[in-house]
Design a protein around this nucleic acid. Sequence first.
DNA 1: TCCTAACCGAGACGGTACGTCGCGTCTTAGG
DNA 2: CCTAAGACGCGACGTACCGTCTCGGTTAGGA
Lengths: 207, 207, 207, 207
Amino acid sequence: MARAEPADDAPRRGRPRSQKTRQAILEATSDLLLEHGLGSISMDTVAERAGASKATIYRWWPSKELLALDALFSEWETARPDTPDTGSLDGDLLALVGPWIHQVAQRPYGRVIAALVVRAQTDPQFAQAYSARFLQPRRDEVRVIFDRAIERGDIPADTDVEAAIDLVYGPFYHRMLQGHAPNTDGFARTVVAYVVAGVSGPAVRAE
Amino acid sequence: MARAEPADDAPRRGRPRSQKTRQAILEATSDLLLEHGLGSISMDTVAERAGASKATIYRWWPSKELLALDALFSEWETARPDTPDTGSLDGDLLALVGPWIHQVAQRPYGRVIAALVVRAQTDPQFAQAYSARFLQPRRDEVRVIFDRAIERGDIPADTDVEAAIDLVYGPFYHRMLQGHAPNTDGFARTVVAYVVAGVSGPAVRAE
Amino acid sequence: MARAEPADDAPRRGRPRSQKTRQAILEATSDLLLEHGLGSISMDTVAERAGASKATIYRWWPSKELLALDALFSEWETARPDTPDTGSLDGDLLALVGPWIHQVAQRPYGRVIAALVVRAQTDPQFAQAYSARFLQPRRDEVRVIFDRAIERGDIPADTDVEAAIDLVYGPFYHRMLQGHAPNTDGFARTVVAYVVAGVSGPAVRAE
Amino acid sequence: MARAEPADDAPRRGRPRSQKTRQAILEATSDLLLEHGLGSISMDTVAERAGASKATIYRWWPSKELLALDALFSEWETARPDTPDTGSLDGDLLALVGPWIHQVAQRPYGRVIAALVVRAQTDPQFAQAYSARFLQPRRDEVRVIFDRAIERGDIPADTDVEAAIDLVYGPFYHRMLQGHAPNTDGFARTVVAYVVAGVSGPAVRAE
DNA sequence: TCCTAACCGAGACGGTACGTCGCGTCTTAGG
DNA sequence: CCTAAGACGCGACGTACCGTCTCGGTTAGGA
């Protein structure tokens, strides 16, 4: 949630927050977000679509971007699979990025994420929230995968895991945001293959 | 330029466009852009800073984003080095991306580019302009480098060059936009090394 | 008022209109109007002087002219005397037009009214509002006076009252708008005398 | 003309003024003026319609209103009859105002004149020009008529002629500008009858 | 059963920026 | 010297959102 929740044992006097309204706002935001993009929707529009009041929105979400973050997160996180463990590095990576690119390709998330990135550039507080919700969890998963590969001895122990993570996600984000080419399954396989080959050590051309 | 230029042999009637004003607008835009980011500057501010009129700006640039594109391009392109040819794939790549990350790190270009990316998500016409000015030229350079490597036999002829290009630029854009880590020289070396190793063929662990 | 008022028994939802702001806008308009004339004032200036927002002005008054109409009316109507009844036609007319020309002469209303007349020429809806607020009430008063004179038998029953009204007000408006001569008390007496003599029937030169 | 003409015996060097352009501008102004009213036309529109350049217009007419004055005058003055002399006061007055109200009724001159009046309220220099072109010539004619009536002994020698003139023209201007009723021939006859009766001296009711 | 706190909708408010239009001036090339 | 074309600085336009603020009304727990 975008606002600090009170302690569970607090008295909680007064009328409690309407969950129906909360849901309506998040859904209205999600819908409008994917229809028009963050820049083209207004708080007034969200309020109207949700049948809510602007004041209510501002009571719980301090900015349009944080609202979008929450809305997107709600839609995104439902039924996301656990970090896979296929036993091989390339298997794990493909099992991770495959569903990710499918989900992203499904609807125009690109422009929404781009808009969030813009806000994160200027607002450090928002940047923190964005990172904690969207960025780090995905990086953590990949980090686990690479760590397991190191433990198994599949890749060198001195592998630069942070760089490797960027090498994995960078190309997909690049295509998603710059839009010069689609994130196809073939592209995913190629990227994973190249990355795995790359981190597996100094290449020796097969004669 | 943001607007089509008339044919060179046209009669050229009427008062000609003021190049002084054009420059003043582009410079004012550049300055404000890097100081505050695209979202925080207004056409009014640009006009005032440039000593120009809003109408004049709109006469030549249909949107704030296209103006920013032009301004950034003017600032960016001055004295950009030619595509390097060091004789080796990793040498070429490093010689290319090194200056690029330095230039980007120098001033807060990240948030400006992010803002342009946002607009490109929604406006196909702008996307085209953005791609032609910023994206494709850089990709073309890397493509040349990989093609040369293939010719030299340094990497397999069936290398997926397009994917390789994304593998090179993706991680740097990723860090620039997501901001989770800086684009250091060390990171550049690591990325280049992994990519070169990755595309050099099926890795064989050195015993 | 410039906008239809809701029914008195309506639920009255939402924040009620700020009467303080309403007054501030009307007073700012009145002041600026008489200082500079309608053509020389801008909505921005009115808003600034009133400490209000332009949007608030446009919410309640669809045009500068209607705002001016309202402002002028507010200033004008405060403490306007009732239709006089002196017992004689010329007495009644003088008692009516005397205060009127004094009020008009007091401040530069002429140019404001002229500007309203311009708008009324082009905009039938505004013409209606102008007529209902400024024109007809004055004409009604004169009509009452003439009707009483007819009842008393002071003037013929077949007097063309509408023409007579124009004969009374026309000369004063003419001088106010064309500005070729001032509306003095002497002029008022002369006009009234001529009109009364004129409608009193076929003149017979006194021998 | 709106600008002082050089002395006839001046050398007159350079390209002479284009009479064709002058006519085109005046006609374009007339047309647009009567179609849309002064407030709704722009110098750009006039220039375009006339096939002329804005600079050319401003070279010869210092303001839109003076241009309109010139244009209207050109259209208005063509073939205006001489001051009539029918031998009787009411005959003269009717012969004068009759054609005038016909001409005015013919096209929407009212709003144009209203606009000129507005400008005259604020700009004394324009007021002078307006008066000299439109107002005083008409007043002079009526003055001549009343003077002749005095000479003939039809009306008292101490008649307030200036007031009488306003009494004649005021009602027609009033109806033209306020628009509450049309300037019909019947109205003209009534006004003239009342005015003539009014100035003919203290009325004595016919027993 | 009230009281009172916190919620909610509606919607008015002071602002800021938008993109456009018209003004009157200017700078070209050309007649 | 005049003209057409058209770019320019300026200022106002009317609109759209922003985030804040009153209102009346609703929904709970504690007194």
